[in-house]
Design a protein around this nucleic acid. Structure first.
Lengths: 256, 256
DNA sequence: CGGATTGTTGATAAAGTTCAAACACGGTGG
DNA sequence: CCACCGTGTTTGAACTTTATCAACAATCCG
């Protein structure tokens, strides 16, 4: 997995020159074990990391141990590119699995910012994609009921993984616990468990042994009110994963 | 209210030259009435707007009329600056009150991107500030219970308004309905009503006639687990509004 | 003044949490 | 090889939080 995967299947593409510049910006490639905190909230950082292999999370930590995940990062993601303009982060960055990371010093990004305005704009775009996903997460937590939240998250994840060639769109490896899913969807692990059974019994999807199988894509997309537009994928991918027409239903928390 | 207010009280400051460049980028200043949709989700736009006066919202619209607000915009905010790199938006932009808006064509932003790398980075920073707020909203919806969500939102809002001189930190004008608050905090207007009474009876704050009065800042900040770090304000403002030590309590939805 | 929107309250139902216990499963050490 | 441990999953029952529905009061606006 190389830098090629960055921006893959997105509406924005890197030129050969830009790709070369990005690759030259990589200071080193490192590995980390599972469940390690890479960056603590409030810490000042002078590098950003590109995720080459594995899964990572960004989460807000509560005073009393309870966490809310704000982003799941898949290979190809520029995990904390936003740390370059922000300097210090408002959240933690951690590994979920063992990972391989490319380290990009902020000095290199500064160089791009000053000398490669078009590439800089594409990097800016990448961070805004993150923001677009944040917005969908807000919607998910604020408006969808538990089963729909899980369904929406699974839809989002399979599409993102498929976009970088890590899923065929019908199944994928998801090395998360039900507890993790709870931290993503704002619910307890017990409730996650019950919801997963619901989805399974409805014939929509199964999640067992860290493996997700989607039995009925349209049904799942409908159950989660999922539409991939916010991921800003290329037209082919967007079309491939566009949900069925979403009708009124028992998806929404409060209708009025 | 002029462009001066952009970036005010933030850790990033504009130079005189940069301010002049930004002002020259303004194509026109327009007004709009309350409750008008300015930009629809999916629409392609070639300008961004700077909010000079009034309040605006950004929200995700559901298939069946139900909405989730993803951002509240106050004067000084570059409401949809992210539309410049993104080209099309994943959400609606609407007015809440009558507003005065400065229109900035994307051509002007493109000029800045290519010729003013430092200013461009500061604009990038602004959009990331938005993302930081998104993350806090995710946390709020995912981890806090209803009363804490409202308390947190009120804390956030008073600080943001105070940062641009629109509140003294103890009271402020908030021209929203309880229904709007529900769309922000992911709950029904009925429940908002009950929670507001709770906060009032606890002596923390009152919200009546579109006016919020904070009676006990530390109490409210504690009830909402509020810490202003994520707003990236200057040290003085951050210190002024830093909450009391937040202890364990009945703030969080699920502790484990 | 009159109609529409917003706020308030109560009763009831649904959704989600908590607590507790049992089960599955992969490692690890004897 | 088996006993044991820790982590993760599953289930049940009681409880809390929040939504829903319905009615009415207050307020705003033309």
């Amino acid at each position: 997995m190389h830098v090629q995967r960055v921006l893959q299947a997105r509406r924005v593409h890197l030129t050969e020159v830009e790709r070369a510049i990005l690759e030259r910006s990589i200071d080193s490639v490192i590995t980390r074990g599972p469940r390690e905190t890479l960056i603590d909230q409030g810490e000042t950082v002078n590098f950003s990391v590109l995720l080459l292999e594995g899964l990572m999370s960004r989460h807000v930590d509560d005073f009393d141990g309870c966490r809310q995940m704000v982003a799941l990062q898949v290979p190809g993601d520029f995990v904390d590119l936003h740390a370059y303009p922000l300097k210090t982060l408002d959240h933690d960055v951690a590994t979920l699995t063992a990972v391989r990371l490319a380290i990009v010093p902020h000095a290199a990004l500064s160089d791009i910012q000053h000398n490669q305005p078009e590439l800089a704009r594409k990097l800016w775009f990448l961070t805004l994609l993150d923001a677009a996903m944040h917005r969908k997460w807000i919607y998910r937590l604020g408006r969808l009921k538990a089963a729909a939240r899980i369904a929406h998250f699974l839809c989002e994840t399979v599409v993102r993984l498929a976009a970088v060639g890590l899923s065929d769109g019908r199944q994928f490896h998801l090395p998360l616990t039900q507890f993790d899913l709870g931290e993503i969807c704002g619910m307890t692990s017990v409730h996650v468990n019950r919801v997963l059974r619901e989805l399974r019994e409805a014939g929509l999807c199964t999640f067992r042994n860290q493996q997700v199988e989607i039995h009925d894509w349209h049904g799942l997309a409908k159950a989660g009110a999922f539409e991939p537009g916010y991921l800003y994928l290329d037209d082919a991918t967007t079309h491939r994963f566009s949900g069925a027409h979403i009708e009124e239903g028992c998806v929404c928390k409060s209708s009025a």
